[in-house]
Amino acid sequence: MKKQPLLKRLITGAFVGLAFLAIGATGADAAKTKIADVSQWQGSINWSKASKQLKMVIIRVKHGNPGDSDYAIDTKRNTNANGAYKYNVPFGQYDFAEFDSVADAKADAKQFYSLASKNAKFYVLDNEKRKSGVKGKEQTYVNAWLTTMRSLTNKPIVYYSYQNFVSVHSINYSKFDGSWIANYSNKPNVSTDLWQYTSKGSVSGISGNVDLNKVVDSSTVSSWYSGSSTKTAPSYYTSVTAGQKVTAKKAFYQYTTANFTGKLSKVSKGKTYTVKAIAKSTKGTPRIQLSNGHYITANKAYVMVK
């Protein structure tokens, strides 16, 4: 075989090497398809192995508040955060909350934030357990927790719960930067960006079962950890002409009043209605009144008026 000149062989080899690295990187990225949430119950995670499959991970920080009978700070919160960070797995952290007062919700948020890793890309309120005696007040506590977190960070803040809890307690989580809803039988029938679909998943490097999640709204979920989006003040329609059409860009609900009381039927993404006028809540937030007399959000992130 005739030998190539040395320089030509070096250049050819360099291109082959770069091509190999490019293919290898593409293959590695393609393998990162799983999104898991973990806590101390997963034991010691081999992050070197897990990182080869995990596109993103959500790590527990604590459960409840001091004084709660089941209060606990997750013993693996720092180990898991450091492991994910070391192996370049984007991660958020979650707070399993059990509110029983506005003060409790505010204190919970402050403690959660103080315990969370500075490398967390986003924060999650895990709101799935109700203490006795707080019926009808869940929304007030959720709002207090969110307001407190907003005062502490400009990173995305996500709402998590089970489909049934959201429905039973009529939780409005539209002011969060996204939603993460669990339902193990079917895709949630409430608005969600990330769907926790099983508690019996598997990930290389994690012993036993692990919760796994599917992306429903890729642009929203990616914004939690990519840094491509931070919370901005909502932009509202402040004037409309009777007879115009409004189309839902996301799912939300209709209400009987401009203060969003009297929850009615769900508005599905893509649904179109006829506009009557702009109204305002008692706090001055613009709402769209429909020709049927019902009220919906005027937030341009949720609706488009033509």
Rank of each mutant, 00 (worst) to 15 (best):
G64P: 06
G64W: 01
N65I: 15
N65K: 14
N65Q: 14
P66M: 15
P66N: 11
P66G: 13
P66F: 12
P66I: 12
G67I: 15
D68E: 09
D68Q: 11
D68A: 14
S69Y: 10
S69V: 12
S69R: 15
D70Q: 12
D70S: 13
D70M: 15
D70L: 15
Y71D: 03
Y71F: 13
Y71P: 05
A72K: 15
A72E: 11
A72F: 09
A72D: 03
A72C: 11
I73S: 07
D74I: 08
D74W: 06
T75E: 05
K76Y: 04
K76L: 08
K76G: 02
R77M: 07
R77A: 03
N78T: 14
N78L: 15
N80W: 02
N80D: 05
N80S: 10
A81K: 04
A81I: 02
N82P: 06
G83Q: 06
G83K: 09
G83Y: 03
G83S: 04
G83V: 01
G83C: 08
A84Y: 00
Y85V: 09
Y85S: 10
K86N: 04
Y87I: 08
Y87H: 08
Y87S: 02
Y87P: 02
Y87W: 11
N88L: 14
V89E: 00
V89T: 05
V89Y: 00
V89S: 00
P90M: 04
F91T: 01
F91M: 06
G92V: 00
G92C: 08
Q93E: 12
Q93L: 09
Q93H: 09
D95N: 15
F96K: 09
F96Y: 13
A97Y: 02
E98S: 09
F99I: 10
F99P: 01
F99W: 06
D100K: 12
D100H: 13
D100M: 11
S101D: 03
S101N: 10
V102F: 01
A103R: 13
D104H: 10
D104I: 08
D104R: 04
D104P: 06
D104E: 08
D104G: 05
D104F: 05
A105E: 01
